[in-house]
């Protein structure tokens, strides 16, 4: 239960940052928070209390049923890698925007764009 509350909080904080913050870098951080929430949600789907890593040679003999599900872990890893790529790309766009306008505030950028 605690996990799902954390997930909800992370996603809520992330959405708050995206909707109400004007600083572009804070928006990127907000997206990262949502990503963390979703990743936590995915990994919790296959978690077993007191379980072992899903590697046959590492789990104790006879306790293979206690291994956590490997698929959600694979999904989460993929999702983390994708998140890294989007974050890097978004930050590089922020750098380009900063070079053009000398600001990272979306309000300022919007004003500069309208004319």
């Amino acid at each position: 239960m605690l996990v799902y509350i954390t997930v909800a909080l992370l996603i809520a904080f992330g959405l708050y940052a995206i909707m109400f913050k004007k600083n572009l870098i804070k928006i990127v951080i907000g997206i990262n928070l949502i990503e963390a929430g979703v990743n936590l949600f995915l990994i919790s789907l296959g978690y077993i209390q007191g379980g072992y890593a899903p590697i046959y040679t590492l789990a104790p003999e006879g306790l293979w049923k206690n291994m956590v599900l490997p698929t959600p872990q694979a999904l989460t890893l993929t999702s983390i890698v994708i998140g890294l790529a989007t974050t890097a790309l978004m930050l590089s766009f922020v750098i380009m925007i900063y070079k053009n306008y000398k600001t990272v505030s979306s309000k300022e950028v919007g004003r500069l764009l309208s004319d």
Binding site: I34, E35, L42
Partner: peptide, 24 residues
Amino acid sequence: RKRAPDSAFKFLVMSTIGALIILT
């Protein structure tokens, strides 16, 4: 390289949120 980064940033933010919603 002048106007496009703003649009690309907006696009990437929107599509990342969309994709994360789908993933949930």
